[in-house]
Structures are given as structure tokens and as C-alpha cells.
């Protein structure tokens, strides 16, 4: 069995807001193995960013984190404390953020910021840190790497900055990288390039990668496993093949119906859409979160919490009262399976 890098069990994030408690993340469980890519997909506001920040222990101050288990390489990081966490962050676990334009400090050179990441965790000379930075800048496809080190962030385009961010995250050779919509703020033309670059690096350095993205086309190409989130919960989880080819949860089916995926969606087929809006997550809410928008919903759906249940195949699970066979038939009717 592959080495387990990250194990998350029943992760919750609550944020006190004006009108009560916002249950932004409601008991999420997932894991990432060495050399594995887990993609988290779901519409905006469903809790993807908070999930990744919770793993990094970088949540906003007022947010409250809870979990049954949060382990990085077998070490409990749920109760690790800030000191230990700061030794881990940027070292064995790194994160790439959504906004490359503002994620680098405008006051320091690329070289300074990259070298500092390594020097913080390793006892290396500036020379060695510099060499490593050049090596990684070349790895992420930046030409004239050595001369880039003395440049400032504002001298680089958004795409280049995100490449720098990726290289910077790799400085200490982390076991796990979390990339939270790393390309959403970028030009469409380079979005896929960057995501594929990430996948390539992940394979080369045998890291675990959690990739949060809207680009289902890229997810279909690079994900080992996929977690579909909806309104603070994972509603379906499985291998990429399972989720894309045998989508079980009505939300996943709707999602795949909405978004054209190269090589999968037939040409000329009209794209679907999911009517309605995401429910408010403020206050207690015991029902299927998707029920209001679900074309298959029935009375039982809103009578209590819905648990994850196994689908037909191993490792494939979903959060719905409908049995797998019915779901399967629905998917085929919609043309997404």
C-alpha cells in the first residue's frame, strides 16, 4: 500500500458571523497518498479554500477548526501547536494560492523570497539556496532563471509569478502541496499549462498534491482521485475514473452536465445547468444540502442528515439516499455516464 501522506477525518470549520454560526466545512474526510493527486471540485463558496487553510492551520483567527483526525505523514497536526506547525509549513507541506498577483511580497526580489523559504527550514548557505532557486525556476519553465532572482514581483506577469510561487513552494522538497485554484486569476490560455506543469512536478518529485480547480477538463487528465464538494460537504469521492465515468451523486451528474470535458462531452450536445442557489450555511441544517436543487429529491431527503455511503466499486462513495443502481440509471439518462 502506498505511503499515506495526509489523513483528514471529519474536518469541520465554523465561523461566527453576525447571524450565528457559519458551518463552512461540515465533516470532511479525505486522504492523500505519496505521489497521488487529489482534486477537489465544487462551486465557489462550498468550502474548498477553508478546507485547505484548515489543513495548513492558516485559517482566519475567528474560524474554529475541529476534526477527529488530522495527520501529516503519520504525525498529528491537529494539536501540534503554532511552533511545530511553522516548522512544517513550507517544509513538508506547502501551499500555492489563488492570487499570484498579490501573493508575493512587492518589496523583495524573487531570489530573496525563494531563498528565505529554504533557509528557514534548512541550514544552507545563501549560495546553496540560490542554486536551488535557479534549479527550481528552470524546472517550472522560467528562462534566464538566474537573472530572474534579482527581479521584483511587479516586473513579472501573472503566469510567471505563479510559476515562481510553485518553485518557491518546492524549495524544501515538500511531501504535500496544496494548490488552491492556482490558475483562476490567470489568462485562460495559460491556465491549463500551469495545471499540467503542477501535475508534472508532482509526478517527478513524487509528492502528494491537492489541487482545487474549476477546470474539470484538467481534473479528468491529471487527478488520481476526485472529491466533489457541495455546501460544506463532500458529496462524492472516488477515483477520477469513477467520478467522471460513473458519477453517482445528482450534483456530480449536474456538474458534469454543465461543463464540457474534452474527449468526453459530445459535440453539439447542449450544456445543462443546475437551477437554484447554494443554501445558506448559517445555523444548523439537517437535510440533504442539494435537495432544493435536485430533480430527484423526495420527502425523505429533507428529514435528516445524509451520510456518505459506498457506491458499487471500492473507494467510491457518495452522499445520497438513492441507491447506486438508480443513480447509475439517472446518469445514463442524462448522458453523463
Amino acid at each position: 500500500m502506498a505511503e499515506r501522506i495526509l489523513e483528514v477525518e471529519n474536518l469541520t470549520v465554523d465561523i461566527p458571523v453576525g447571524g450565528g454560526m457559519l458551518h463552512a466545512v461540515q465533516g470532511i474526510s479525505f486522504h492523500v497518498d505519496k505521489g497521488e493527486t487529489l482534486c477537489i471540485v465544487g462551486e465557489s463558496g462550498c468550502g474548498k479554500s477553508l478546507t485547505s487553510l484548515a489543513v495548513m492551520d492558516l485559517l482566519p483567527k475567528k474560524a474554529i477548526r475541529g476534526a477527529n483526525k488530522l495527520e501529516l505523514g503519520g504525525e498529528d497536526i491537529l494539536n501540534a501547536g503554532e511552533r511545530r506547525m511553522s516548522d512544517i509549513r513550507g517544509n513538508t507541506m506547502g501551499m500555492i494560492f489563488q492570487e499570484p498577483m498579490t501573493s508575493l511580497n512587492p518589496a523583495y526580489t524573487i531570489g530573496n523570497q525563494m531563498e528565505e523559504a529554504l533557509k528557514r527550514h534548512r541550514n544552507v548557505s545563501t549560495r546553496e539556496a540560490r542554486d536551488r532557486a535557479i534549479y527550481l525556476l528552470e524546472k517550472v519553465g522560467i528562462t534566464a532563471a538566474a537573472s530572474r532572482l534579482s527581479q521584483y514581483p511587479h516586473q513579472l506577469s501573472g503566469g510567471l509569478r505563479q510559476r515562481v510561487m510553485i518553485a518557491m513552494t518546492l524549495m524544501c522538497g515538500p511531501n504535500l502541496i496544496i494548490a488552491d485554484e492556482p490558475t483562476t486569476a490567470l489568462d485562460v490560455t495559460i491556465q491549463a499549462q500551469i495545471l499540467l506543469l503542477l501535475a508534472e512536478l508532482q509526478r517527478e518529485f513524487e509528492m502528494g498534491l491537492i489541487l482545487i480547480t474549476h477546470d474539470l477538463g484538467v481534473v479528468a487528465r491529471i487527478a488520481d482521485r476526485v472529491a466533489v464538494m457541495y455546501a460544506g460537504q463532500v458529496v462524492e469521492q472516488g477515483t477520477a475514473d469513477q467520478v467522471f465515468n460513473r458519477p453517482t451523486h445528482p450534483y456530480t451528474q449536474g456538474l458534469l452536465d454543465c461543463i464540457p470535458i474534452p474527449g468526453k462531452t459530445e459535440r453539439n450536445k447542449p450544456l445543462g445547468s443546475i437551477p437554484g442557489i447554494v443554501p445558506s450555511l448559517v445555523g444548523a441544517f439537517h437535510a440533504c444540502h442539494f435537495a432544493e436543487r435536485c430533480q430527484y429529491a423526495f420527502a425523505e431527503c429533507v428529514k435528516g442528515d445524509i451520510d456518505m455511503r459506498p457506491a458499487v466499486e471500492d473507494g467510491h462513495e457518495y452522499r445520497c439516499l438513492l441507491d447506486p443502481e438508480t443513480c447509475r440509471a439517472n446518469a445514463q439518462k442524462r448522458g453523463v455516464a
Binding site: 492558516l58 511553522s86 512544517i88 513550507g90 494560492f97 501573493s103 511580497n105 518589496a107 528565505e116 528557514r120
Partner: peptide, 26 residues
């Protein structure tokens, strides 16, 4: 509250480095 401070923390930098080198300087 800026993104680059979050980046600095994500790199595991010491609080004093985050505060003085990355925040105060700007």
C-alpha cells in the same frame, strides 16, 4: 491581511520575520 503575508506564513517563517521583514517594511 494581504496575500503575501499569508504566503510568508505558509512558508513557515517566524512571526517576527513575518511582522518586521514582510509587513512593516511595506
Amino acid at each position: 491581511s494581504s496575500d503575501y503575508i499569508r504566503t510568508a506564513r505558509a512558508k513557515g517563517l517566524r512571526p517576527s520575520v513575518v511582522l518586521f521583514k514582510h509587513a512593516l517594511r511595506n
